[in-house]
C-alpha cells in the first residue's frame, strides 16, 4: 500500500542509506500510518521493500516501543510516569487520565478513539506532566487542560 500511495516518500527514504535495511524503521513508520498499526500486511510490505525476511521486520517491530502490533485508538496518548515526571505528580495525573477516558493505561477506549499508555522518560521533564498525542508533545498538562484536549479531539 505505501509502495503506491506514498511512492515518493518511500523512494526518498530508500535513497538516504547505502543499505536498504537501514530504511526498515522509517518505512515502518509510514506503514504504521497507512495501515493503522504494524499488522501482518504492513510487515510484509516493508519486508519486500527492504529485501528482508518478514521475520526480521517483525523482530524490529517487536523491539521498539513506538511500533504497535495491535490495533490502537485513533489517538495514542502516551503519558510519561517516569521518575522525574512522577516527582511532579505524574502518577496522580495518569490516574486522572484513566478516569477521564474510562480505561486503564494500556487500553483503548471502546469507541476506538483513544489509547492510553504510560511511557518512560520522553525528555521533557522540565515541563511535567507531559504527554505525547500521536507523537506530538503536550507540555505542562493539568487535569483541566487534559480534559479539554480530549474533548477537542473527540
Amino acid at each position: 500500500m505505501i509502495k503506491e500511495k506514498r511512492a515518493n516518500e518511500v523512494e526518498k527514504i530508500l535513497a538516504k542509506y547505502p543499505s536498504k535495511r537501514s530504511a526498515v524503521m522509517p518505512l515502518l513508520y509510514l506503514a504504521q500510518e497507512e495501515y493503522g498499526y504494524c499488522n501482518d500486511d504492513a510487515i510484509r510490505e516493508v519486508a519486500e521493500l527492504t529485501a528482508l525476511d518478514p521475520t526480521e521486520v517483525k523482530s524490529v517491530v517487536g523491539f521498539y516501543t513506538m511500533f504497535f502490533e495491535e490495533k490502537t485508538g485513533t489517538y495514542v496518548i502516551e503519558v510519561c510516569d517516569d521518575l522525574p515526571c512522577a516527582l511532579r505528580g505524574a502518577d496522580e495525573f495518569v490516574h486522572h487520565c484513566e478516569r477521564k477516558l474510562g480505561v486503564r493505561a494500556g487500553q483503548t477506549t471502546p469507541d476506538g478513539k483513544f489509547t492510553l499508555r504510560t511511557v518512560m522518560c520522553i525528555a521533557a521533564c522540565d515541563r511535567a506532566p507531559v504527554a505525547q498525542v500521536n507523537r506530538e508533545y503536550r507540555y505542562s498538562l493539568t487535569p483541566e487542560s487534559f480534559d479539554k484536549m480530549v474533548d477537542d479531539l473527540k
Binding site: 525476511d53 521475520t55 523482530s59
Partner: peptide, 21 residues
C-alpha cells in the same frame, strides 16, 4: 542464510519467533 528466526520484544520478554512464509 535463511533468516526465519529472530528475537521478538526485548529484555525478559525477548523470545524466539518466526514470521516467514
Amino acid at each position: 542464510d535463511d533468516h526465519v528466526l529472530q528475537f521478538h520484544e526485548r529484555g525478559r520478554h525477548m523470545e524466539i519467533i518466526t514470521f516467514s512464509d
